[in-house]
């Protein structure tokens, strides 16, 4: 048994994506099977297996995935970003308002969305990296600011992006085209870019190193503050991207919400193997984590439970993942 496990761990494919990721992928299938069996029992006869269900879960996975990818960079530097959910909503509200009320071109509104996210990221990054504020309190404060700005900009109205048939609705093709999950392709593409940035560029190298030992990096003559700030900018920018995929899937955004998504995005990261202590991060893990979060939500709803169960489960998952991480580090020392 042990030998077989070791042999499996040594497979090239397993080594390439990491054993933990393989386990996570298995968990996805297990969850799928679990829901498939339980849904008919709990909701007499209604079935979990159906294409729309998969698409619906993916819709949720996209924006959680983008948020998760962004916050992965921040967690890699040893920080945290609690503002991404509301920032995503703020981006969607502002750009959607520009689109529907000011009739600006769609491509420009998408640009606005991303820019708003980047702006929030820069503000947070500045305070954390240059003013040495704790990242959690800074980002929580920014979360409030993002909620407020979104509400004020839209005069406390919800914003509905153009429906499928309307003009300027091609943004929806980013998510789904002819019932094909284009969003998944884009998520994978962006994840690939993120992986390149994190593992193959100077920026990513410095982020990971400074998350592990900031002082050693500084004493190597690196301006750690710039790279730390960059992580927050990336996080904000990707929240801006996530906004497009949120409206692409759900069209309507309401002001003053979005904070539950922080937790789910962070859950996706820590499940995927990104350490809260900083210094190690897995992009692939975050994507898989996002899919698990989305599938979990779909399953919970399909089985007839309320979304509240999702909140509780997310909380427990993060707690478990972080505890496991801390325990394993303690054991190693």
């Amino acid at each position: 048994m042990k030998a077989a496990l070791q042999k499996f761990k040594n497979l090239r494919f397993v080594k390439l994506i990491g054993f933990n990721r393989v386990v996570l992928i298995l968990i996805i299938f297990l969850m799928y099977g679990f829901f498939t069996i339980l849904t008919p029992i709990l909701r007499n006869g209604s079935s979990f297996v159906n294409y729309n269900r998969v698409m619906s879960a993916l819709n949720y996975a996209y924006f959680i995935g983008f948020l998760g990818l962004g916050v992965t960079f921040v967690i890699a530097t040893g920080g945290i970003d609690f503002s991404i959910g509301p920032v995503m909503f703020c981006s969607a509200l502002i750009s959607g308002y520009c689109l529907t009320k000011f009739n600006l071109p769609l491509w420009f509104c998408i640009f606005i969305s991303i820019a708003v996210g980047a702006l929030f990221g820069s503000i947070g990054g500045y305070f954390v990296a240059f003013r040495h504020l704790p990242s959690f309190i800074t980002s929580m404060a920014l979360m409030q600011v993002a909620k407020g700005v979104g509400s004020i900009f839209t005069k406390t109205q919800s914003v509905t992006w153009p429906a499928a048939e309307a003009t300027s609705s091609w943004y929806r093709y980013l998510v789904k085209w002819n019932n094909l999950p284009t969003g998944f392709v884009i998520l994978c593409l962006v994840a690939a870019i993120c992986a390149v940035v994190l593992y193959k560029t100077r920026a990513g190298r410095y982020m990971l190193c400074l998350g592990s030992n900031k002082e050693a990096v500084r004493l190597s003559g690196v301006d750690t503050r710039r790279w730390e700030m960059l992580a927050y900018i990336l996080s904000g920018t990707l929240a801006g991207v996530a906004a497009i995929f949120y409206v692409g899937a759900y069209t309507t955004v309401q002001p003053g919400l979005g904070d539950t998504f922080n937790n789910e995005a962070i859950a996706a990261c820590v499940m995927g193997g990104t350490s809260m202590a900083g210094g190690s991060a897995s992009i692939l893990g975050t994507v898989i984590g996002a899919i698990i979060v989305a599938l979990m939500q779909e399953g919970i709803l399909a089985m007839g439970f309320t979304i509240s169960y999702q909140y509780v489960l997310t909380g427990l998952i993060v707690l478990g993942a972080v505890t496991a991480d801390i325990m394993s580090r303690k054991r190693r020392n």
């Binding site: 945290i80 609690f82 959690f136 539950t260 937790n263 962070i266 809260m276 979304i307 509240s308 169960y309 999702q310 909140y311 509780v312 489960l313 997310t314 909380g315 427990l316 993060v318 707690l319 972080v322």
Partner: peptide
């Protein structure tokens, strides 16, 4: 992070 998790938990 601990209290963030319990924040989610009590929310649900």
């Amino acid at each position: 992070i601990t209290t963030l998790c319990s924040m989610m938990i009590v929310r649900g």
